[in-house]
Simulated scan of single mutants.
Amino acid sequence: MKRREIYSDLRCIPPVIVRIDGRNFKNALARMGFEKPYDEKFTSAIVKAIETFFKKSGLSPVFAYTFSDEISFFFRDDAFDGRIEKLDSTIPSYISSAFSMVLDLEEPVSFDSRIIPIHEEDVREYLIWRQNEAWRNCINSYAYYTLISEGMEEQEAARMLKNKVSSDMHELLFERGINISKVPTWQRRGIMVMKKEIEIEGFNPQLNVETTSTRTKVFAEYEIPLFSSEEGAAFLQKILAKNTEE
């Protein structure tokens, strides 16, 4: 029967991105009473689950980029020797457990997973792509749930927004007093979770001197730049360069 495990030796060569997505989250979270289009408690739980993964999973992503119920982990090392089945099962199951524990959910939730082999010089292009999706998700969600709040049925709202471009939804929202460019940055651009060095002051009683040491802390940045901008390129370059030194 061991010979039937024909996929167990499939491997990927780093660097890779492992992207996980919530499965059927829309209906599950609606039943749990989360606010729409964005719920700060939900987002905080996603971030805390990612931070727990950095600290306790035994794996070492360089960073994680998240928006909505999507998380992209970037790995330089060959976690699990690159075994695809391990990566695609361990990472989403860990996040599912951590997320559920943070919120003490009444029903189970799950994430699915996919692996994207990538050259490091293409990481920025990948993040631009996902950040564009974060923006599309943001404006679509605000438009959809604004119409729902006005009493429109779900199918009617979806039909009304079908084939509308970003500028159309911008105008739709602006007419209703919502300036989408003023909503919180993390809703429009997503959130980056990464390691950050901090200095800690202390005291050595044996030498009777004050001391300074460096510690690595997992840090979530809610105010990230556009990755397509020069500021975004510098922001990402700093993260990647720092982790290369480590």
Rank of each mutant, 00 (worst) to 15 (best):
residue 19 R to E: 13
residue 161 L to F: 09
residue 200 I to D: 10
residue 56 K to L: 00
residue 178 I to A: 01
residue 200 I to Q: 14
residue 192 M to I: 15
residue 57 S to D: 08
residue 187 Q to R: 08
residue 198 I to L: 12
residue 226 L to Y: 11
residue 174 F to Y: 13
residue 184 P to V: 06
residue 196 K to P: 00
residue 218 V to L: 10
residue 56 K to I: 02
residue 215 R to W: 08
residue 25 F to G: 05
residue 41 K to C: 07
residue 82 G to S: 07
residue 91 I to F: 03
residue 221 E to V: 02
residue 92 P to I: 04
residue 97 S to W: 01
residue 176 R to Q: 04
residue 164 K to T: 15
residue 153 E to S: 14
residue 165 V to S: 09
residue 112 D to R: 03
residue 147 L to K: 09
residue 112 D to K: 00
residue 172 L to C: 00
residue 78 D to Q: 12
residue 29 L to I: 14
residue 30 A to P: 01
residue 106 E to W: 03
residue 156 E to S: 14
residue 151 G to K: 11
residue 86 K to L: 13
residue 8 S to A: 08
residue 80 F to C: 08
residue 9 D to E: 15
residue 145 Y to S: 08
residue 129 W to L: 08
residue 3 R to Q: 12
residue 16 V to G: 03
residue 196 K to C: 06
residue 135 W to M: 02
residue 32 M to A: 15
residue 2 K to M: 14
residue 97 S to T: 13
residue 176 R to N: 08
residue 203 F to K: 10
residue 15 P to T: 05
residue 196 K to G: 02
residue 95 I to N: 09
residue 192 M to G: 06
residue 85 E to P: 00
residue 230 E to W: 00
residue 104 D to P: 00
residue 226 L to R: 14
residue 172 L to R: 00
residue 48 K to E: 15
residue 1 M to Y: 12
residue 154 E to G: 13
residue 131 Q to V: 02
residue 150 E to M: 14
residue 42 F to N: 06
residue 22 G to Q: 11
residue 120 E to T: 12
residue 241 A to E: 14
residue 133 E to I: 05
residue 61 P to L: 10
residue 191 I to G: 09
residue 5 E to K: 12
residue 221 E to L: 03
residue 220 A to R: 09
residue 238 K to G: 01
residue 194 M to F: 06
residue 72 S to L: 10
residue 160 M to W: 07
residue 80 F to E: 06
residue 170 H to A: 04
residue 159 R to I: 07
residue 9 D to Q: 14
residue 200 I to R: 15
residue 203 F to S: 08
residue 131 Q to E: 05
residue 176 R to W: 03
residue 217 K to D: 04
residue 4 R to A: 07
residue 93 S to K: 02
residue 160 M to S: 11
residue 36 K to F: 08
residue 178 I to W: 00
residue 142 Y to L: 09
residue 70 E to F: 07
residue 141 S to C: 02
